Amino acid sequence: MPSIAFTKGHGTGNDFVIVADPEGELELTAAQVAALCDRRFGIGADGLLRVVRSSAIPAGAEILAEEPDAEWFMDYRNADGSIAEMCGNGTRVFARYLLENGLAEIPAGSTLPIGTRAGVKDIARSTNGFQVDLGRWRLSGDDVLVRARGLEVARPSLGIDVGNPHVVVALSSVAELEALDLTTAPVLDPALPGGANVEFVVPSDPLVTDGIGEIRMRVYERGVGETLSCGTGTAAAALAVRHWAGPSAPAHWRVHVPGGTLAVRAFPTEEGEHVALSGPAELVYAGSIVVA
Protein backbone atom coordinates (compact mmCIF):
# COMPACT_ATOMS: atom_id res chain seq x y z
CA MET A 1 0.00 0.00 0.00
CA PRO A 2 1.31 3.51 -0.83
CA SER A 3 2.38 5.96 1.84
CA ILE A 4 2.23 9.75 1.70
CA ALA A 5 4.25 12.42 3.47
CA PHE A 6 2.32 14.86 5.63
CA THR A 7 2.78 17.73 8.03
CA LYS A 8 0.54 18.46 11.02
CA GLY A 9 -0.30 22.11 11.68
CA HIS A 10 -2.82 24.24 13.55
CA GLY A 11 -4.10 27.77 14.03
CA THR A 12 -5.37 28.36 17.60
CA GLY A 13 -6.08 24.65 17.94
CA ASN A 14 -7.94 24.31 14.63
CA ASP A 15 -5.73 21.53 13.28
CA PHE A 16 -4.95 20.21 9.82
CA VAL A 17 -3.20 17.43 7.96
CA ILE A 18 -1.13 19.10 5.22
CA VAL A 19 -0.27 17.08 2.13
CA ALA A 20 2.00 18.43 -0.62
CA ASP A 21 0.85 17.52 -4.12
CA PRO A 22 2.31 20.25 -6.37
CA GLU A 23 1.41 18.65 -9.70
CA GLY A 24 -2.03 17.41 -8.69
CA GLU A 25 -1.16 13.73 -8.96
CA LEU A 26 -2.70 12.61 -5.67
CA GLU A 27 -6.41 11.81 -5.77
CA LEU A 28 -7.59 11.23 -2.22
CA THR A 29 -11.13 9.95 -1.86
CA ALA A 30 -13.51 11.34 0.74
CA ALA A 31 -13.10 8.10 2.70
CA GLN A 32 -9.30 8.40 2.66
CA VAL A 33 -9.44 12.01 3.85
CA ALA A 34 -11.81 11.01 6.65
CA ALA A 35 -9.45 8.18 7.63
CA LEU A 36 -6.45 10.53 7.75
CA CYS A 37 -8.38 13.01 9.90
CA ASP A 38 -9.73 10.36 12.26
CA ARG A 39 -8.45 11.07 15.78
CA ARG A 40 -8.36 7.44 16.84
CA PHE A 41 -7.30 5.52 13.76
CA GLY A 42 -5.55 8.22 11.71
CA ILE A 43 -3.42 11.31 12.24
CA GLY A 44 -6.31 13.32 13.61
CA ALA A 45 -7.40 16.76 12.39
CA ASP A 46 -10.32 19.09 11.73
CA GLY A 47 -9.51 19.00 8.02
CA LEU A 48 -6.97 18.36 5.29
CA LEU A 49 -5.05 20.95 3.26
CA ARG A 50 -3.73 19.73 -0.09
CA VAL A 51 -0.95 21.98 -1.38
CA VAL A 52 -1.34 21.99 -5.16
CA ARG A 53 -0.41 24.40 -7.94
CA SER A 54 -3.38 26.33 -9.28
CA SER A 55 -2.38 25.26 -12.79
CA ALA A 56 -2.70 21.58 -11.82
CA ILE A 57 -6.28 21.60 -10.54
CA PRO A 58 -9.46 22.41 -12.50
CA ALA A 59 -10.67 24.84 -9.82
CA GLY A 60 -7.41 26.75 -10.24
CA ALA A 61 -8.12 27.95 -13.79
CA GLU A 62 -10.58 30.57 -12.56
CA ILE A 63 -8.12 31.57 -9.85
CA LEU A 64 -5.31 32.20 -12.32
CA ALA A 65 -7.64 34.23 -14.53
CA GLU A 66 -8.35 36.44 -11.51
CA GLU A 67 -4.78 36.57 -10.18
CA PRO A 68 -1.93 35.14 -12.32
CA ASP A 69 0.44 35.28 -9.33
CA ALA A 70 -1.70 32.87 -7.28
CA GLU A 71 0.61 29.92 -7.94
CA TRP A 72 -0.69 27.80 -5.07
CA PHE A 73 -4.22 26.51 -4.44
CA MET A 74 -5.49 25.41 -1.03
CA ASP A 75 -7.62 22.34 -1.71
CA TYR A 76 -9.45 22.14 1.61
CA ARG A 77 -11.44 19.14 2.84
CA ASN A 78 -13.47 18.85 6.03
CA ALA A 79 -12.74 16.02 8.46
CA ASP A 80 -15.54 13.93 6.96
CA GLY A 81 -13.93 14.21 3.51
CA SER A 82 -16.39 16.74 2.12
CA ILE A 83 -15.13 19.69 0.08
CA ALA A 84 -15.33 23.15 1.68
CA GLU A 85 -15.04 26.57 0.07
CA MET A 86 -12.56 28.08 2.48
CA CYS A 87 -10.94 27.95 5.90
CA GLY A 88 -9.64 31.09 7.57
CA ASN A 89 -7.28 29.37 10.00
CA GLY A 90 -6.29 26.99 7.23
CA THR A 91 -5.10 29.82 4.96
CA ARG A 92 -2.64 30.99 7.60
CA VAL A 93 -1.34 27.47 8.23
CA PHE A 94 -1.13 26.95 4.45
CA ALA A 95 0.95 30.12 4.09
CA ARG A 96 3.23 29.06 6.95
CA TYR A 97 3.80 25.71 5.21
CA LEU A 98 4.65 27.38 1.90
CA LEU A 99 7.16 29.70 3.55
CA GLU A 100 8.79 27.05 5.75
CA ASN A 101 9.28 24.75 2.75
CA GLY A 102 10.67 27.41 0.40
CA LEU A 103 7.67 27.26 -1.93
CA ALA A 104 6.80 30.95 -1.58
CA GLU A 105 7.85 34.09 0.25
CA ILE A 106 6.23 37.24 1.57
CA PRO A 107 8.62 40.19 1.18
CA ALA A 108 8.21 43.01 3.69
CA GLY A 109 5.19 45.13 2.87
CA SER A 110 3.72 42.69 0.34
CA THR A 111 1.18 39.86 0.31
CA LEU A 112 1.01 36.27 -0.89
CA PRO A 113 -2.05 35.40 -3.02
CA ILE A 114 -3.38 31.87 -2.68
CA GLY A 115 -6.28 30.24 -4.49
CA THR A 116 -9.32 28.80 -2.72
CA ARG A 117 -12.78 27.74 -3.84
CA ALA A 118 -13.96 31.07 -2.43
CA GLY A 119 -11.56 33.03 -4.65
CA VAL A 120 -8.10 34.49 -4.13
CA LYS A 121 -7.07 35.25 -0.56
CA ASP A 122 -4.15 37.57 0.17
CA ILE A 123 -1.89 36.65 3.11
CA ALA A 124 0.39 39.10 4.89
CA ARG A 125 2.64 38.81 7.92
CA SER A 126 1.24 40.30 11.13
CA THR A 127 2.46 40.90 14.65
CA ASN A 128 0.53 37.84 15.86
CA GLY A 129 1.41 35.56 12.92
CA PHE A 130 -0.36 36.01 9.61
CA GLN A 131 -3.29 38.08 8.36
CA VAL A 132 -5.65 36.95 5.61
CA ASP A 133 -8.00 39.24 3.72
CA LEU A 134 -11.15 37.12 3.62
CA GLY A 135 -12.66 39.45 1.04
CA ARG A 136 -16.06 41.06 0.87
CA TRP A 137 -18.60 39.84 3.39
CA ARG A 138 -22.37 40.07 3.30
CA LEU A 139 -25.49 39.36 5.29
CA SER A 140 -26.87 36.17 3.80
CA GLY A 141 -30.50 36.96 4.57
CA ASP A 142 -31.06 33.50 6.06
CA ASP A 143 -33.76 33.68 8.76
CA VAL A 144 -32.91 30.59 10.80
CA LEU A 145 -33.82 29.39 14.27
CA VAL A 146 -31.11 27.34 15.97
CA ARG A 147 -31.75 24.53 18.42
CA ALA A 148 -28.86 23.11 20.44
CA ARG A 149 -28.42 20.89 23.47
CA GLY A 150 -28.16 23.09 26.52
CA LEU A 151 -30.53 25.77 25.20
CA GLU A 152 -34.06 25.52 26.53
CA VAL A 153 -35.61 27.22 23.50
CA ALA A 154 -34.59 27.79 19.89
CA ARG A 155 -32.67 31.01 19.31
CA PRO A 156 -32.74 33.39 16.34
CA SER A 157 -29.55 33.81 14.34
CA LEU A 158 -27.93 36.14 11.85
CA GLY A 159 -26.66 34.71 8.56
CA ILE A 160 -23.19 35.89 7.52
CA ASP A 161 -21.34 34.89 4.34
CA VAL A 162 -17.55 35.32 4.35
CA GLY A 163 -16.89 33.00 1.42
CA ASN A 164 -18.60 30.17 3.27
CA PRO A 165 -21.92 30.19 5.17
CA HIS A 166 -22.38 30.93 8.87
CA VAL A 167 -25.25 31.49 11.27
CA VAL A 168 -24.42 33.39 14.46
CA VAL A 169 -26.39 33.07 17.70
CA ALA A 170 -26.07 35.54 20.61
CA LEU A 171 -26.14 34.10 24.14
CA SER A 172 -26.66 35.95 27.41
CA SER A 173 -23.69 34.81 29.48
CA VAL A 174 -20.45 32.86 29.56
CA ALA A 175 -22.23 30.30 31.75
CA GLU A 176 -24.80 29.73 29.02
CA LEU A 177 -22.03 29.40 26.45
CA GLU A 178 -20.16 26.85 28.56
CA ALA A 179 -23.34 24.84 29.21
CA LEU A 180 -23.81 24.09 25.51
CA ASP A 181 -23.41 20.46 24.47
CA LEU A 182 -21.96 20.58 20.96
CA THR A 183 -21.25 16.86 20.71
CA THR A 184 -24.45 16.85 18.65
CA ALA A 185 -24.98 19.13 15.68
CA PRO A 186 -27.25 22.13 16.25
CA VAL A 187 -30.50 21.93 14.28
CA LEU A 188 -31.30 24.73 11.83
CA ASP A 189 -34.95 25.56 11.17
CA PRO A 190 -35.39 25.80 8.28
CA ALA A 191 -32.47 23.65 7.21
CA LEU A 192 -30.08 25.32 4.77
CA PRO A 193 -29.40 23.34 1.54
CA GLY A 194 -25.62 23.38 1.94
CA GLY A 195 -25.61 23.55 5.71
CA ALA A 196 -23.73 26.19 7.67
CA ASN A 197 -21.20 26.65 10.42
CA VAL A 198 -22.90 27.72 13.66
CA GLU A 199 -21.28 30.22 16.04
CA PHE A 200 -22.49 30.91 19.58
CA VAL A 201 -21.22 34.23 20.93
CA VAL A 202 -21.22 36.20 24.18
CA PRO A 203 -20.26 39.91 24.09
CA SER A 204 -17.80 41.05 26.74
CA ASP A 205 -18.80 43.58 29.37
CA PRO A 206 -17.85 46.24 28.50
CA LEU A 207 -18.18 45.39 24.82
CA VAL A 208 -15.53 47.90 23.70
CA THR A 209 -12.24 48.74 25.40
CA ASP A 210 -9.74 51.20 23.90
CA GLY A 211 -11.59 51.08 20.58
CA ILE A 212 -11.52 47.28 20.27
CA GLY A 213 -14.61 45.11 20.57
CA GLU A 214 -14.33 41.83 22.43
CA ILE A 215 -16.40 38.65 22.35
CA ARG A 216 -16.17 34.98 23.31
CA MET A 217 -17.24 32.21 20.93
CA ARG A 218 -17.77 28.49 20.43
CA VAL A 219 -18.41 26.95 17.03
CA TYR A 220 -19.86 23.84 15.42
CA GLU A 221 -18.34 23.35 11.96
CA ARG A 222 -20.33 21.52 9.31
CA GLY A 223 -18.60 18.31 8.32
CA VAL A 224 -16.39 18.41 11.42
CA GLY A 225 -18.16 19.05 14.73
CA GLU A 226 -17.10 21.40 17.49
CA THR A 227 -13.60 22.75 16.92
CA LEU A 228 -11.28 24.74 19.17
CA SER A 229 -11.33 27.56 16.64
CA CYS A 230 -12.77 28.54 13.26
CA GLY A 231 -11.20 31.44 11.39
CA THR A 232 -14.09 32.36 9.14
CA GLY A 233 -16.46 31.70 12.05
CA THR A 234 -14.49 34.13 14.18
CA ALA A 235 -14.89 36.79 11.49
CA ALA A 236 -18.60 36.02 11.10
CA ALA A 237 -19.16 36.25 14.86
CA ALA A 238 -17.40 39.61 15.13
CA LEU A 239 -19.31 40.97 12.13
CA ALA A 240 -22.62 39.80 13.58
CA VAL A 241 -22.03 41.45 16.96
CA ARG A 242 -20.83 44.60 15.18
CA HIS A 243 -24.03 44.59 13.12
CA TRP A 244 -26.18 44.19 16.24
CA ALA A 245 -24.25 46.93 18.07
CA GLY A 246 -25.03 49.52 15.40
CA PRO A 247 -23.14 52.18 13.42
CA SER A 248 -20.95 53.31 16.33
CA ALA A 249 -19.43 49.81 16.76
CA PRO A 250 -15.67 49.54 16.14
CA ALA A 251 -13.98 47.97 13.12
CA HIS A 252 -11.44 46.05 15.24
CA TRP A 253 -12.40 43.00 17.30
CA ARG A 254 -10.70 40.53 19.61
CA VAL A 255 -12.33 37.10 19.61
CA HIS A 256 -11.62 34.50 22.28
CA VAL A 257 -12.12 30.88 21.23
CA PRO A 258 -11.28 27.70 23.19
CA GLY A 259 -7.97 27.44 21.31
CA GLY A 260 -6.76 31.01 21.82
CA THR A 261 -7.43 34.53 20.57
CA LEU A 262 -7.83 35.90 17.05
CA ALA A 263 -8.14 39.43 15.69
CA VAL A 264 -10.75 40.60 13.18
CA ARG A 265 -10.74 43.88 11.27
CA ALA A 266 -13.35 45.32 8.88
CA PHE A 267 -12.09 47.84 6.34
CA PRO A 268 -13.46 49.64 3.27
CA THR A 269 -12.39 48.85 -0.31
CA GLU A 270 -13.58 50.02 -3.72
CA GLU A 271 -15.78 46.93 -4.08
CA GLY A 272 -17.27 47.14 -0.60
CA GLU A 273 -16.27 46.31 2.95
CA HIS A 274 -13.76 43.50 3.46
CA VAL A 275 -12.90 41.60 6.61
CA ALA A 276 -9.42 40.47 7.66
CA LEU A 277 -8.47 37.77 10.15
CA SER A 278 -5.12 37.53 11.91
CA GLY A 279 -3.58 35.07 14.32
CA PRO A 280 -0.89 32.43 14.80
CA ALA A 281 -0.10 29.47 12.55
CA GLU A 282 2.03 26.58 13.75
CA LEU A 283 3.58 23.50 12.15
CA VAL A 284 3.81 20.76 14.76
CA TYR A 285 5.44 17.69 13.21
CA ALA A 286 5.95 15.80 9.95
CA GLY A 287 5.83 12.14 9.00
CA SER A 288 4.48 9.62 6.56
CA ILE A 289 1.45 7.36 6.70
CA VAL A 290 0.15 4.41 4.71
CA VAL A 291 -3.04 5.24 2.82
CA ALA A 292 -5.34 2.30 2.25
Rank of each mutant, 00 (worst) to 15 (best):
S278T: 08
D80A: 07
M217S: 02
G11N: 10
R265N: 14
V162R: 01
S172P: 01
P193H: 00
N164R: 00
Y76A: 05
Y76T: 02
M217F: 00
I289N: 01
A118K: 00
S3W: 07
E152F: 11
V51K: 07
G159N: 06
E25S: 06
L28C: 08
P206N: 08
G223C: 12
E23D: 15
I57Y: 04
L192G: 09
E221D: 15
G115S: 11
G60E: 01
R242K: 14
L112M: 12
L99I: 13
V120E: 06
N197Y: 03
N164M: 09
G150V: 06
F267G: 08
G211F: 07
T183A: 14
V146T: 09
G90C: 09
S204E: 15
C87Y: 02
R218H: 05
G141C: 06
A281Q: 04
E214W: 06
G231M: 04
L98C: 14
V153H: 14
P58L: 00
N78T: 08
V202E: 08
A35K: 11
A154V: 04
E67S: 14
G44T: 08
T29M: 08
H274M: 07
R242P: 15
D69A: 13
W244H: 05
V93S: 04
V51I: 11
A240W: 03
G90N: 05
N164D: 13
V167I: 14
H166E: 10
L239N: 09
I212W: 06
G109C: 07
A5I: 02
T116F: 03
L145M: 15
P193D: 12
A251D: 15
T116K: 01
R40M: 13
I18A: 10
R149H: 12
F6N: 04
R222I: 07
L36E: 05
N197G: 10
R138L: 15
P203T: 00
C230G: 09
P250K: 00
A104W: 09
T116Y: 02
I57L: 15
S204N: 14
N89H: 01
G163L: 08
E199Q: 13
S54T: 02
T227V: 07
A263Y: 07
G223Y: 11
I57F: 06
R254S: 14
